[in-house]
C-alpha cells in the first residue's frame, strides 16, 4: 500500500460506532502518519470521520464499532450489512457487547428502574422512563453484532491497537483474509 501497489480502483471504506464509545475510532486515528496511507488506500465513505450519514454507494469494507443496544443500532447495522461487501466487527463491544453488555446480567427493567425511577441520587424527584417516539427503543439485552447480522471478520481489543487496524486494512486492501499475528490479538 505504498502507492505502487495501490489497486486500480480504490476500495471504499465505511465505519460506524453503534453501542460503543468511539474509542475504536480513536485508535484507528492513532495510526499517526499511516492514517494518510489508509486514506491513500481507501476511499472513506459513510463514517463519523467524514460526517457522511447515508450510503450513497456500495462499499467494500465496513468497520463496526460497538454492539446493538437499541433498535436504531440494529437498523444501522443492517444497513451496513446491505451496503458493504465485507463487514468487520471491531473491538470488544462489537464482538461480545463489551461494557454496555454489563447490563445483560442485570436485566432491562432493573436497569431502567435504577436509572430513572428509583435513582439513589434523585430522592423525591418524580422519575420517568424516557419513551419519546424519537428515542431509540432499548433491546432486551445488548447483542454482539454477529448475533444480528452475518459478520465476516473480527478484530478484538478494547480498543484494538492502531497496528491491528493497520494490519487488518492492509490485508483487506490486498484482498487477503486478515490473519493477525498473536502480538496484535488483545482483549483489553
Amino acid at each position: 500500500m505504498d502507492g505502487t501497489e495501490a489497486p486500480h480502483k480504490k476500495p471504499i471504506l465505511a465505519t460506524v460506532s453503534l453501542a460503543g464509545c468511539f474509542g475504536c475510532h480513536m485508535s484507528l486515528l492513532d495510526a499517526d502518519e499511516r492514517i494518510l496511507d489508509v486514506l491513500a488506500a481507501f476511499e472513506l465513505h459513510r463514517s463519523p470521520l467524514t460526517d457522511i450519514k447515508r450510503f450513497a454507494k456500495r462499499c467494500d469494507v465496513g468497520l463496526i464499532e460497538g454492539g446493538c443496544c437499541n433498535d436504531e443500532n440494529v437498523h444501522v447495522l443492517r444497513e451496513f450489512r446491505e451496503n458493504c461487501d465485507v463487514l468487520v466487527a471491531v473491538g470488544a463491544c462489537a464482538i461480545n457487547g463489551g461494557l454496555p453488555a454489563l447490563r445483560n446480567e442485570i436485566g432491562l427493567e432493573a436497569c431502567l428502574t435504577e436509572a430513572y425511577l428509583e435513582m439513589p441520587t434523585g430522592a423525591g424527584a418524580e422519575g420517568i422512563i424516557p419513551a419519546d417516539a424519537d428515542i431509540p427503543k432499548l433491546l432486551d439485552r445488548v447483542y454482539p453484532c454477529h448475533e444480528v447480522v452475518k459478520i465476516d471478520y473480527f478484530l478484538p481489543g478494547c480498543p484494538p491497537p492502531a497496528d491491528a487496524f493497520w494490519a487488518l486494512l492492509t490485508a483487506l486492501a490486498a484482498g487477503r483474509a486478515p490473519d493477525l499475528p498473536t502480538e496484535l490479538i488483545h482483549y483489553d
Binding site: A89, I95, N96, G97, A101, N104, E105, I106, R141, P144, H146, E147, I151, Y153, F154, L155, P156, D179, L180, T182, I185, H186, Y187
Partner: peptide, 21 residues
C-alpha cells in the same frame, strides 16, 4: 486470555450466556 491469544481466538463459536455471577 493468553491461551486464547495463542489460539488466535477472535470470537467464540458458542453464544455468550450473560448469566449473572
Amino acid at each position: 486470555q493468553a491461551v486464547a491469544y495463542h489460539m488466535h481466538l477472535t470470537v467464540p463459536r458458542f453464544p455468550y450466556r450473560y448469566v449473572p455471577f
